[in-house]
Amino acid sequence: MHELSVASAVVEKVLEFVSAHSVKKVLAVRLAIGELSHIEAEQLRFCYVAITEQTPIQDSALEIETVEAVVNCERCRYRGRPKYWDDALSVGPIPTMECPNCGGAVEIAEGNDCAIKSIRFAVEDDGLAIPAA
């Protein structure tokens, strides 16, 4: 469900890009998904394929890269990977907000965003100048 709204946001942005430039074909859209953003890559891909059908970006590849979580501890100044909870019953070990160093509470520094990194595309044959981003 959630993946669907993310996929729609991706498609909307890419279509906006396509209509503003002389794009012949979008080959790939590269996303950076934070480990803490809870977006499931497979589900996202599925939604992407479904909603790009019959659009100018049909058949473009969705490349998903995961951005690892980084947390900060105010108490002991730790900065790095979070502590993981292995007995959680979700798919794999899950990141927690407990400091791996001192056991205090940490804050998220990186890994909770979800962004379009780049778009790979072919330009029209009479492709004018290099389109600007």
Partner: peptide, 21 residues
Amino acid sequence: TIEASPDEIYDIELEHSLLEA
């Protein structure tokens, strides 16, 4: 499938956050 030749292919950095809005 139509393959564009390499010199017709562009990679544009967007860095557009989907959660930012």
